[in-house]
């Protein structure tokens, strides 16, 4: 596997300061996020937990550059991204963030290989190179022999592995996984978590959103969000040594 060069300094990949997200509900202003400060180091494997309505999803969307905070500062790779335009955010997602969703979110009309290659289209990479890289990452998740299969011909676990390959294909700094095992049986859950731990082992930064404590323990750091603030932060700063 081609490794991304890990910067030697233990700088923070993500640095949130005073992030607030306010929604107007009729006359009232409701704060989905009410002042979040958070640093995530390179190579960390963090689990984001919290009951529904806690602001966990909102935080996830902001971290994933799908949404902008109302106020506060978000530095991704040392670059301020809190107030970028839609297209700049799209570019940032494409280059720096790989998504894995609960319901896989694969395009059903194209093959696994084409699904994996999708982010590369928007990165402006040529067709031949796209195929090559997509094939490489399908191989990484052990699905090279399923390259030409349509997503609906695959099992849930296999689909999620295709989705992980897609998240990896543009070699982003951060993998964002939103309830990646929520729709899977125990055996597939095991497989998927193994893959995440292997990825962590190769020095990737992973943010995992889950409400299951037994999944959260796979991560090195557990964050609990409640009423728009982080109420608990355990295992902070544990980074696996990268050889």
């Amino acid at each position: 596997m081609k490794e991304k060069k890990i910067k030697s300094s233990a700088e923070h990949v993500i640095r949130l300061r005073g992030i607030k997200k306010l929604y107007q509900m009729g006359q009232q202003q409701v704060a989905a996020l009410d002042g979040i400060d958070l640093d995530i180091k390179r190579g960390e494997f963090a689990a984001l937990m919290g009951p529904s309505g806690s602001g966990k999803s909102t935080l996830m969307n902001i971290l994933g550059c799908l949404d902008r905070p109302t106020c506060g500062s978000y530095e991704l790779e040392g670059r301020e991204v809190a107030h970028l335009s839609d297209d700049e955010l799209a570019l940032t997602r494409n280059r720096h963030i790989g998504f894995v969703f609960q319901n896989f979110n694969l395009l059903s009309r194209i093959s696994s290989l084409d699904n994996v290659a999708l982010p590369l289209i928007y990165a402006g990479i040529g067709a031949r190179e796209r195929r090559k890289r997509a094939m490489h990452f399908l191989d990484t998740v052990g699905l090279a022999d399923r390259a030409e299969h349509m997503p609906n011909e695959l099992s849930g676990g296999q689909r999620q592995r295709v989705a992980i390959a897609r998240a990896l294909v543009n070699e982003p700094e951060i993998i964002m996984a939103d309830e990646p095992t929520g729709n899977l049986d125990t055996k597939s859950t095991r497989e998927i978590m193994d893959i995440f731990q292997k990825l962590h082992g190769t020095g990737r930064t992973i943010i995992l959103v889950t409400h299951e404590p037994e999944i959260a323990v796979c991560a090195n750091r557990q964050l609990l969000v409640r009423d728009g603030v982080i109420t608990r932060d355990e295992g902070k700063g544990v980074v696996l040594d990268v050889v």
Binding site: D87, A90, R93, N94, F99, L118, P119, Y122, N170
Partner: peptide, 10 residues
């Protein structure tokens, strides 16, 4: 939505 999440611009 998927395409946009993966980096498709306007």
């Amino acid at each position: 939505g998927i395409r946009k999440a993966l980096g498709a611009t306007f």
